[in-house]
Amino acid sequence: MGGKRKNAAAARGVSPTPSATSTTPSATVTTKVQPKDSAPPIATTTNAFATSTQIEPTTTTTTTSTTTKVSGTTSKSSSSNTAAAGGQAWNKVFSNLLRHYQDTTPQRTKLLDAFMAFLVVVGGVQFLYCVLAGNYPFNAFLSGFSATVGQFVLTASLRIQTTEANKSDFPSVSPERAFADYLVCSLILHFFCVNFIN
């Protein structure tokens, strides 16, 4: 829940600052740098995200071009060493994935990802508990588990809708609209869960 609240605060900071778009050039630099920062203060991240809607295309194109170059070399190498380098190829896959993730994901989305990872962990713990200790208050287990699953799905939807690359899929959903939808859906979800928990 803590993650969610922080995220909410971050996004609330976003919407009322359209003026931030004017400071695009400086913000591009910050977004590129920020992934390396371990703990950026929230205020700056929100600032960066308000602008991110306009910056992203350029950054993504550059990063993808670099990754394709890299991948071309890796694929050649992996094809030459066939079976023996299977594990190595896997490492490459993951490192590519990781690099792509770190390069192209804006900070705000990373926050969502952290929250989703948290939800996965919580859901896993609940499920493990259910398997090990029995599912006696089945209502409670179900509502808890579906709260995590539902919240995960909603967050994933929010993430998809706010990602720049998917902009063409959602012509009518602006990021603000997406967040409002997210809030409404979460409210409904938790209402049902609380009602169901007995």
């Binding site: 579906s146 799905v153 939807s157 998917n166 859906c185």
Partner: peptide, 17 residues
């Protein structure tokens, strides 16, 4: 499509509950 994902998962998660 991502739209399918959003529509279906939202419906299922909330609708089942």
């Amino acid at each position: 499509s991502t739209r399918l994902y959003v529509a279906y998962t939202t419906w299922y998660a909330l609708g089942t509950l």
